[in-house]
Amino acid sequence: MDPVRTTLSFFIDPLKYLVDLPRVLGEHAADSVTSYSALKKENKRLREEQLIHQIRLLKFASLEKENIRLRALLENSFKLGEQVLIAELISINMAPYENIVLVNKGTRFGVHPKQPVLDANGVVGQVFRALPFSSEIMLITDPNHAIPVQVNRNGLLTIAVGSGKLNQLNLPFLPNNADIRPGDLLITSGLGGTFPQGYPVGIVDDFTPQPKRSFALITATPKAMLDRNRELMIVWSNSKPVPLISKQTMIETETAAHPDE
């Protein structure tokens, strides 16, 4: 039935943008009356932020090279980087009881279902349905959504299931003696193939052992600002891992890391 839905969406999508129009106009109006001093202050803040990020990136580049080399030594595969597309939220209320949001990029931009979606702080969800001019994104907190995660501290693997509340994830499959404690960072484990490995998902905020049951009661707070962010990033991950880094590439990366040698 998907072609029919796609065809009908050509008639329906203008309505979605129409509903969103008052907000867009309001934002334009707010932008055009922002004072000079406020803009200047924002500009200064952004400059400082950019400087900090650039310095971090400098370190990141060398760390990545090191990681490639180490993985080559372990004869392990290495995943290539990801490509992102920035999409903006369309504020319409599709179904009040499901955590599904709509963004303004669709198949016209190459978006396809099951793509991971991130924001500046962490994983937001995945593309649930892609229409030509918009796509529906299921948030990680949707009751029907589960995401394979890993505790960053010790690599413990588990699955985070949505709770239906925008600020809570459940970890229902860990035993009572699991090595996990409040404050632990959960990152994507890369298992399951939908989400690329290593992106922050949430922070564990409660661990209650249930002595009479086999699994503990663990909840986490998503890192991504699910109810506040307007800009989301749709990710194309290169799903084909490079099988094994050959000697040739290893030498190349070494020379790239130390060009003056």
Partner: peptide
């Protein structure tokens, strides 16, 4: 009804 399904992203129909 079909158009509303598309609009709200429900099961088609």
């Amino acid at each position: 009804g079909l158009l509303t399904d598309v609009l709200t992203g429900r099961l088609f129909g």
